[in-house]
Design a protein around this nucleic acid. Structure first.
Lengths: 349, 349
DNA sequence: CTGAAAGCGCTTACAG
DNA sequence: CTGAAAGCGCTTACAG
């Protein structure tokens, strides 16, 4: 007595729902997509049938028929190094906004331009969101050549005609130096990112570097900069280098999350007290991270989630073919956590 | 003179390839899938046509027709906290093996059982790989109820009939304690994970805790354990607590990657030398992480990539309907990095 | 070794 | 406000 329909117990289709609700297949589709008006009575019957049959649309069928995947691929090339909490904030914000707008946000670890282009060409995503942008980025070239919709969190040296959201590293470094200068510090150090990532130059580090040089020259401060790998060990060495270059150092700016742990460790090891002997000010950190240090670091906090959401908004504009919105520069606000004070031997005026 | 075919420049279809190669559509499909033998001459012509037209299969169409997505969803519920390098090793290994086997490995941040079940029910993935398993895990219950193919990296208290790969935390802690004991240490501390995550109990921490209690009792050692949040600040406090509980402490076992930074910071702050005054031995860390500490920590290193690959292998067995393979316990090997030595005031026999 | 055709489960003009 | 039907781009029994 077994029939071919015996495995129908698996999944209800839209056709099953239509039958159950006594309407046509297309009506069920329109109830779900909202693409045309449906009477409330019909809607109710369809939704009841959907609930009764525990139906959900098949993603592949929707994609094939509509020619849209409703997927945004977030490419995070440094996945093998883990994801820092600050970077995660951007991802979290992008993910939330994408979901709000009816998109899935999926993370891929690809590093090669070809792999990234392939995601869209093979119909696995409608568009790409790039992170960890370098000044000259081959991924950007490939995506532009292939006319694939994409946006950047960060920006290349030439970002004309591309959608991007970036943190204003230059302005933030200027504010940070001015803040320390106002407190009376005249001998500063900057612990920056490594000067190269994957052989290209990382935009954030380069822009911070330039702004730092300008502002300290303008204020007539004695300043040194160290380009530092993303690790506590490198951070310890960086602080040692800064102190041997300038023994009168009274304040350190860190814009390297992992290295900052080492900076603090080295200060502790030398018996230097924060902020009594040396002030430490973190630049472009997420609040969660700044609180992790011991002591917690005063910081120009980045609103990563908001920036991530803004990046999705820009990307959706591009996807809709409404043109490329202007780039967005986000600012960071100083949050005091007690690691910054006037320099020790300050002569009061 | 414009025709409807003018937008054909977009993407070549399999039908286009078939025409170009002078074969049927099904032959092109079989060349690509390898599901039935095709003569070398035909293969060559098809591949040439594919190259000429720059063709790639549409993922949605393949999925719809074959009823397989060839996607494995890796659910990493703690994405909002970032991903540690050790966890990343597992992901990397799983990703590489999945690709080898013709699957995409896609990372989702879902925490709710319903969201996870939905991924498979909506046809976005064929199977689920779970990480950060708790002793009693509602996600596992939901997946089992819905008969969805899945595997765990880690394991629940009752893991009968489920595919899993886990690190042998109990054995590793035992080896670590025995190693320290052999060197002459009699007063140990263990900095464990927080005793609860999301309200449930984290398997790794609980199993390590039990093994620790057993082995120190058996060896007659004086030992204390601290359950510690995943942060350097918590780690500093943890070490303080251990030292005030037992001022004679000469060795610390850490199995909390973030807290270990704080443990080292607190030791430095107190002027205690590693390993001269206190030995520090890390348990179940990836080599990359152990080298990040200052000083680098001797560690029982986990082969995360291998474990991730093994988890994919188990999951594929389940997907193929070949039954549930037995669980796999992986061991960790001690790698000396100089942070462990005999205790300071040891009386030589 | 190869082809013709049904069908996967939806969306979306067309038509009323 | 609703329906009937074509079609999205493939896979896979059937058939030879």
């Amino acid at each position: 007595m077994e029939t071919q329909t015996s495995h129908r117990t698996q999944h209800a289709t839209m056709q099953d729902v239509a039958r159950e609700a006594g309407v046509s297949l297309s009506t069920v589709s329109y109830v779900l997509s909202g693409q045309r008006p449906v009477s409330q009575a019909t809607k109710d019957r369809v939704h009841a049938a959907i609930a009764r049959l525990d139906f959900r649309r098949n993603a592949a069928a929707v994609t094939l028929a509509s020619r849209r995947t409703q997927v945004i691929a977030l490419v995070y090339p440094l996945l093998h190094l883990g994801i820092s909490r600050t970077a995660t904030e951007f991802v979290r914000g992008a993910h939330a906004r994408a979901n709000e707008m009816g998109y899935d946000l999926v993370v891929w670890p690809h590093t090669e331009p070809d792999q990234i282009v392939e995601l869209v060409r093979a119909g696995k995503a409608d568009a790409i969101l790039l992170m960890e942008i370098e000044l000259t980025d081959p991924r950007v070239v490939a995506l532009r050549d292939q006319q694939i919709p994409f946006a950047m969190i960060g920006r290349t040296a030439d970002s004309d005609g591309i959608a991007w959201v970036d943190v204003d590293f230059a302005a933030t470094v200027v504010h940070a130096v001015e803040h320390l200068s106002r407190l009376g510090h005249t001998h500063l150090g900057l612990v920056n990112h490594a000067s190269s990532t994957h052989g290209h130059r990382y935009g954030a580090g380069v822009r911070a570097s330039g702004a730092f040089a300008d502002i300290v020259a303008q204020l007539g401060l004695s300043c040194h900069e160290v380009f530092c790998d993303e690790s506590p060990v490198a951070g310890r060495q960086a602080l040692s280098d800064l102190l041997s270059t300038d023994p009168d150092l009274t304040a350190v700016l860190t814009m390297n999350e992992d290295a900052a742990f080492g900076v603090l460790a080295e200060l502790h090891a030398r018996g230097l007290v924060i902020p009594g002997d040396v002030s430490v000010l973190s630049v472009v950190t997420s609040p969660g991270v700044a609180s992790l240090y011991s002591p917690p670091l005063s910081s120009f906090d980045v609103q990563g989630a908001e920036a991530g959401a803004a990046a999705i908004d820009s990307l959706l504009t591009v996807i809709r073919g409404e043109g490329v919105p202007p780039g967005v520069l986000t600012c960071c606000d100083l949050v005091e956590r007690g690691s910054v004070a006037p320099p020790p031997h300050r002569t009061h005026p």
